[in-house]
Design a binder for these strands. Structure first.
Lengths: 340, 340
DNA sequence: TTGAAAGCGGTACCAC
DNA sequence: GTGGTACCGCTTTCAA
């Protein structure tokens, strides 16, 4: 465009060469000093000059250049979707992140909403992460797993409801949630059980298996299951509650505590007695559910991990090639309160 | 350790050189073809052979190498903390992310919990992002801003309650929330107003300014403000409610709807009439708040953005050096329901 | 139309 | 102790 000798309006970013020049040493020395390389002995005055120069220039090493040279990164990639995580996942990721940081990994969440499964896997692979942890709600295919491992990922771990071939599966089988809720309702003598299916997009990876689990539990007992689509809005709940008696249900598993609270209020407003006419069970054991009257019965979820996931990942990184392992981590327990 | 000639158990990751070799062309040609470079004409047979080779090898370009060569990345970094985002922020980030993706940026969240402000800024700078968007709850210092811009970030934007020198501030002044709540309560004739201060760590960046805003609004009207520490647990709420009458309050702004629901239940259980004895106001306008009886009054929050943030960022990236701009985006409106 | 080669920033081997 | 230098994977200029 311009004939000018390359505009220099932007102050150029200092490199290790700049530090070397200012300190009057070579780039090699700069690298040794700043990385506290123990295999080589550098005199104290030199070390000082290098550090001085680095801080003076505001030098920050270039992670990409470093990992390019090293041939590997210490980045653990967590694809993230658009689903607001429940309390279980929040705690889980919190811990995972803290654990990985302690082991000196860089944890990065990559927003993958709106990409199809294989596009997404390719996009992740471009970053050359050393490990990828795919949360429930994000689809990972067999092909995607292949792309990731072939691009150098030492550990590909899926947390989704379904195991994926080639990836390690620390699976959280959502069917347990449905089964737990329905089991509880059956034990309390209920036989015609509605199961709320959120209409909100993106929740299907959770709601479908929960329904399947509910059906499974009901099947063996000869009980009846009826899916009930519901939007997370008062009008939708009022509508569902309006036709409630015609449904002939004596219980409902409401997907989670939030939908349960919504539906329970609508049922009460429609004159349905709880738990007299209909028992209501949620899931997640939210604090707010305990504030209702009647107090909301719920399915509590916990993760059964012998070892923190961060350490498992670290082990996989050091010993790759381990045959994929599949564990179901989800433990559920029905919590009986007053609504069932 | 071992004398073996470098274990080759791990299949090496295919590079553009591998693709070139397989296709019988040079690396340059591979780059041209795979990037659809329009400035150079490559024959159709060659293009085909290259693409063929790439898919056969499962070639995925190395993002770090690419941006190293290019001298810049298209990565927008979103540091993230450990604070569960409210509905406002969730929507906001959802939109931001989608918008940035449409403009072909790579959006990456970087877990920064447990790092001090300047360590964190340095860690972000190592990734050489082209832009950084710092959400409320993450501290960015003036120094941190300097580190980021000197490392090549074209846009540093803070969303925190406080503007930061050197960074663009799309500020969300949380004082408005407190002021809105208290203004509403004053208008309804309340004069002795409690303000719930969550004891949970990490919420101070929100709760402190909300309290300040409450004080400000009360000050001009000669009303009284009393901070009320509260843990998000039933016992803590029961304790607070137990000594309620001695506090002599006729209203409470409960930080947000969740704390409001918790406290309101405890007050009702302690025999405090709502809104008769004490008015309760939350914030966030959660659906669940509408399900209580009395329905929870709240402060609704919205963002007033003329332009989507993604486009603003894109503009800043193309025209850096723009003087930092500070806008307060937060618009609040008190929503009167039944609890006040 | 294609290829050779330089160079982005950092690390580590090998000389001196 | 310290410096020279090759190289990681990719893009792009310049020549052929």
């Amino acid at each position: 465009m311009s004939q000018l000798p390359k505009q220099r309006t932007e102050v150029s970013v200092p490199t290790s060469a700049d530090v070397a020049r200012l300190a009057g040493v070579s780039r090699a020395t700069v690298s040794y000093v700043l990385n506290n390389n123990a295999t080589v002995r550098i005199s104290e005055p030199t070390r000082h000059r290098v550090r001085e120069a680095a801080t003076q220039l505001g030098y920050v090493p270039h992670a990409a250049a470093r990992s390019l040279r090293a041939g590997h990164s210490r980045m653990v990639l967590l694809p993230s979707g658009h689903i607001p995580a429940g309390p279980l996942h929040q705690r889980f990721f919190q811990e995972l992140q803290a654990g990985l940081r302690r082991l000196d990994y860089t944890v990065v969440q990559y927003g993958s909403a709106g990409l199809d499964a294989d596009e997404a896997a390719r996009a992740w692979a471009e970053l050359r992460p050393v490990a990828v942890v795919v949360p429930p709600g994000i689809t990972l295919t067999r092909h995607g797993t292949g792309v990731l491992t072939r691009s150098g990922a030492k550990a590909v771990i899926t947390l989704g409801p379904e195991p994926v071939e080639g990836a390690h599966g620390l699976v959280m089988d959502q069917r347990r949630v449905g089964a737990g809720a329905v089991g509880h309702l059956l034990a309390r003598g209920r036989r015609r059980i509605g199961v709320v299916m959120p209409r909100e997009p993106g929740l299907a990876p959770f709601s479908e298996p929960r329904l399947a689990g509910a059906r499974q539990a009901a099947g063996t007992a000869g009980a009846h299951i009826l899916p009930l689509p519901l939007r997370y809005e008062e009008e939708s709940a009022a509508e569902l509650a309006g036709g409630w008696r015609e449904l002939g249900l004596d219980a409902v598993f409401a997907y989670n505590d939030e939908y349960a609270m919504l539906l329970m209020r609508a049922l009460q407003d429609a004159g349905v007695a709880i738990p007299g006419d209909t028992a209501v069970v949620g899931a997640d054991d939210l604090l707010l559910g305990r504030l209702l009257r009647p107090r909301l019965s719920t399915v509590r979820m916990e993760l059964a991990m012998e070892h923190p996931l961060a350490e498992t990942i670290d082990r996989l990184v050091h010993h790759p090639g381990t045959a994929p392992v599949h564990h179901d981590l989800l433990r559920t327990s029905a919590v009986h309160r007053e609504s069932s």
